[in-house]
Design a protein around this nucleic acid. Structure first.
Lengths: 224, 224
DNA sequence: CGATCAATTGAGCCGTCTCAATTTGGGTGG
DNA sequence: CCACCCAAATTGAGACGGCTCAATTGATCG
């Protein structure tokens, strides 16, 4: 359970202390928000089960999905600047998170210094994830983006102990498109094409990766 | 000086303690790297003078500039995941940074808890900056991106006490294009067009914003 | 079983990229 | 100080990728 909430390599006795931190849990029904832009934020959240999307929105309503979250991943790291949420976190299916209050965390961290390091790592990881995504949006063709997206999901499912070659997309084509800077039609067309080429088997939201090698090649091809 | 290195609102007596942290400085000549992908990282850096770019690179050489840094801003927050740099930081002009070692920081933070909070805020801010950039690359037209880029620079120069309406671009058209997910030609064409329309006066790398209102309108127009 | 929303597929258009030719500016050595 | 050279920037013409608009099919859920 705790490994789900702050999974980076901690010793067993350290995990015991962690229990003090993680008392509270929140259920988030499909379609509802764990938090919204403008909410006060004194905590971060570890996703225990289900999946969520996070998105930001500018003043005129233009939205950008910044991430899809799977169990074991952390939400709310972008809200620690001034204790106000700057993004929305919305459940893609019925989900459950555990709550890690920042003030409690600081108290415990005085006895368990590694905790600060862990948080720092998690935040740094999120920065890297964003930067990688920037590279995708700035430099990759639509084909490569969708291929890379599927491979990324695949790896994360595998890390959770699920099959890397067969999984369910919990998000719509439109959400994938928004995330990747494409339209839903482009995403749909590419999934169809990959299927036609024998690389995938896509039925609705169920994806089977038939030729991982070809998919990796697509993700890395120079587009020429 | 210290306000430059960790500028978020700290009381005067707190700043005194900060002096212990920031002994070392590094000069970075134009074109050279403060650090490179793969280097060990035990510190973060506060930019004192000059300007730098940070960029990541995937295995086949595809590069993405993830930020342009101005004095007072922090570098290296993306390298705290496993003490290895994942990006390059390259000086756009002769620059100077101060060094903040993470282990020293943790020691001092035990007497000065606000320090952890500050770092957390800085990292959260960087996450938000990346997410905002994602929105730009994913959802804005070239026109809007370039307009938003100029306005962002303008605000940051103003925050430093410089003119918000007249400044020098320290980066090439190619670097701007890479950062914004555009080609250098597109950037050049747009700067020319904005000039033709009386919104800007662009001479080489010297930019004058003549009609801020129009520029803001461009950055926010729905593209229709 | 009908209503509604998600996904697929097609046709045509537009914006941005690509390729290429000039122009301009900065730095260097004669 | 001027001439030259190289890199950066501008500008143009044409191609192409992804978007827009639109119609159809397929799921999901009362």
């Amino acid at each position: 359970m705790n490994t789900v909430c702050l999974p980076l390599g901690m010793a067993r006795d350290e995990i015991v202390k962690m229990d003090e931190l993680i008392k509270e849990r929140i259920r988030v029904p499909k379609g509802s928000a764990l938090y919204q832009q403008g909410d006060a934020s004194e905590a971060i959240y570890g996703l225990r089960s289900g999946s969520l999307k996070t998105q930001i929105q500018d003043r005129r309503g233009q939205a950008q999905i910044t991430g899809f979250l799977l169990p074991g991943e952390i939400l709310g790291l972008d809200g620690l600047m001034d204790n106000t949420q700057v993004s929305h976190a919305i459940a893609l299916e019925d989900s459950e998170v555990c709550v890690i209050r920042l003030d409690e965390m600081d108290q415990i961290a005085s006895r368990l210094p590694i905790l600060q390091t862990q948080l720092r790592r998690l935040m740094s990881k999120e920065i890297n994830r964003s930067h990688t995504l920037l590279l995708a949006l700035g430099g990759l063709r639509s084909e490569q983006r969708v291929a890379a997206f599927l491979l990324n999901l695949s790896e994360r499912f595998q890390a959770l102990g699920y099959s890397p070659s067969a999984f369910i997309l919990r998000m719509s084509r439109e959400e994938i498109g928004n995330f990747l800077g494409l339209t839903l039609e482009t995403v749909s067309r590419l999934l169809s094409r990959f299927t036609r080429d024998g690389i995938l088997d896509v039925r609705h939201r169920e994806v089977h990766i038939l030729d991982r090698h070809a998919l990796q090649a697509l993700a890395e091809t120079d587009g020429g």
